[in-house]
């Protein structure tokens, strides 16, 4: 696939979506270890219940990492200037996350704006945000 350039993009273009396999308890355990985020709300159902949840929930930053994978599958990470999201819903065990993105703006200085989101198998949006990339013409 040829590299993505500023000239090759149009507003409204969509990024190749990324769907990841359903989140398991093992996923959360591995992510806790790798990320250093050992908050028991992601690991310990007893702790989660004590704070009013039915079960553990996924790390929001795991879902953001998937969105980051979608971006770096599309353009080299070195193109990434900004990446920000707002988390809008909790992600449950067994949820299947799909990340999507759309080009919303491009500027003469080489920057490209992408709106992105991650949603589960029901279409419930877990996070939405924006990335800014800098690309060669």
């Amino acid at each position: 696939m040829p590299p993505i350039t500023l000239d090759s993009l149009s507003i409204g273009d969509t990024l190749p979506p990324l769907t990841v396999k359903p989140i398991s308890r093992t996923t959360l355990a591995l992510y806790a270890g790798a990320s250093g985020d050992h908050n028991p709300i992601h690991l310990d159902i007893d702790f989660a219940k004590r704070f009013g949840l039915d079960d553990v929930i996924a790390h929001g930053m795991l879902i953001m990492a998937y969105a980051g994978r979608m971006l770096t599958d599309w353009v080299p990470q070195s193109a990434l200037q900004r990446f920000g999201v707002r988390f809008s819903a909790m992600t449950a065990v067994h949820d299947e996350i799909t990340c999507t993105g759309t080009v919303t703006a491009k500027h003469e200085d080489g920057t490209v704006h992408v709106d992105l989101q991650a949603a589960d198998q029901r279409g419930d949006i877990k996070l939405a945000g924006e990335a800014v990339l800098r690309l060669a013409a």
């Binding site: 709300i41 004590r50 929001g60 990446f83 920000g84 999201v85 707002r86 988390f87 945000g129």
Partner: peptide, 14 residues
């Protein structure tokens, strides 16, 4: 308390 914490937003500038 840690159990009341949720992540609302996260932004990075590189």
């Amino acid at each position: 308390e840690l159990g009341r914490l949720l992540h609302g937003e996260q932004h990075f500038d590189y």
